[in-house]
């Protein structure tokens, strides 16, 4: 059992990188008062544009930027409707998910025979995959914490999520801060999509995010909108996900359906058990 956990741990660390990056991005957006339900579609789009960029240029770095560009395009749609036109964020996000799933699926089916999807994608080596994991698990959380809790910009960003009218009254533009948060989210979710299609997997597949965006949304809530909380939430989910495969491989008599549910149940239980009142940003999901 102990050996199984030790073997599963490294798998969990790199396999949950796309989820973690998405969680980090959503944390920033929600702190600024936006629920981006379209995060699933954003990641899926990024996974596809990353493959396009990597295949055309032959470089993984270009693939990363391609993924970010795809996520930025989706963020622009989300921001235009939810910030500029003050449309309902939930409705906008849902529409974006449907759009992204349909559009990427259409493009993928139409271009099935093209070299972009047939040829194998540039390879991310084991060393690079470890470096990506370190950046995602350690460097980015520190930077985000510093930005959100140590800078004036971070204070104003959080104020946009708590009481946007106070921000507006004191001068700075709420819309500009929310746009900034959205750009930060898009960069992180774009990287998540690129990692998904270029590192964790080798290429694009329809609906390949398979719910990671939605899990990211719930981890941000369970993590109490705190960096520590979301790191713990992602870690618990990631380890449970890797462990349940090891359990499936070990035990043939257990129902695999139950094992597949383990990550969700364990994450729920652990994060519910941690003391502390759930307090969402006061103006989350509301326009300014």
């Amino acid at each position: 059992m102990i050996e199984m956990i030790i073997q599963s741990l490294p798998l969990a660390i790199f396999a949950s990188v796309p989820l973690l990056l998405a969680v980090e991005g959503e944390l920033v957006a929600e702190r600024a008062g936006m629920i981006n339900l379209g995060i699933e579609g954003m990641m899926l789009t990024a996974a596809m544009t990353a493959v396009f960029a990597a295949q055309i240029s032959g470089s993984i770095i270009a693939g990363l930027f391609g993924g970010i560009a795809g996520a930025l395009a989706v963020a622009a749609i989300f921001g235009f409707f939810s910030i500029r036109l003050k449309a309902d964020q939930i409705v906008t996000g849902t529409a974006i998910n449907l759009l992204a799933l349909g559009l990427t699926g259409f493009v993928y089916r139409e271009m099935q025979q093209s070299a972009i999807f047939v040829r194998s994608v540039p390879h991310v080596g084991a060393a690079a995959e470890n470096a990506i994991a370190i950046v995602s698990w350690i460097v980015i959380p520190i930077l985000l914490s510093l930005m959100l809790w140590m800078t004036a910009f971070g204070l104003r960003l959080r104020a946009c999520g708590e009481y946007p009218r106070a921000v507006a009254a004191s001068g700075p533009s709420v819309a500009m801060h929310r746009w900034a948060a959205l750009v930060i989210e898009a960069v992180l979710v774009g990287a998540a999509g690129a990692d998904l299609s270029l590192a964790l997997s080798s290429g694009f597949a329809e609906n390949m995010t398979s719910g990671r965006g939605f899990i990211a949304l719930s981890i941000v809530i369970f993590g109490r909108w705190k960096t520590r909380g979301i790191l713990l939430g992602t870690a618990v989910f990631g380890i449970a996900a890797a462990l349940q495969y090891a359990l499936q491989a070990m035990n043939q008599s257990l129902q695999f359906h139950l094992l597949l549910a383990i990550p969700y149940v364990v994450t729920l239980l652990i994060l519910c058990g941690i003391a502390g009142k759930v307090r969402a940003p006061e103006s989350l999901g509301r326009d300014a």
Partner: peptide, 19 residues
Amino acid sequence: EVYTGNFDDLGAARLATLS
């Protein structure tokens, strides 16, 4: 035998195989 629960998630299939 290991099942991933879907046919889309390449990452999950890789994880299952590594296990």
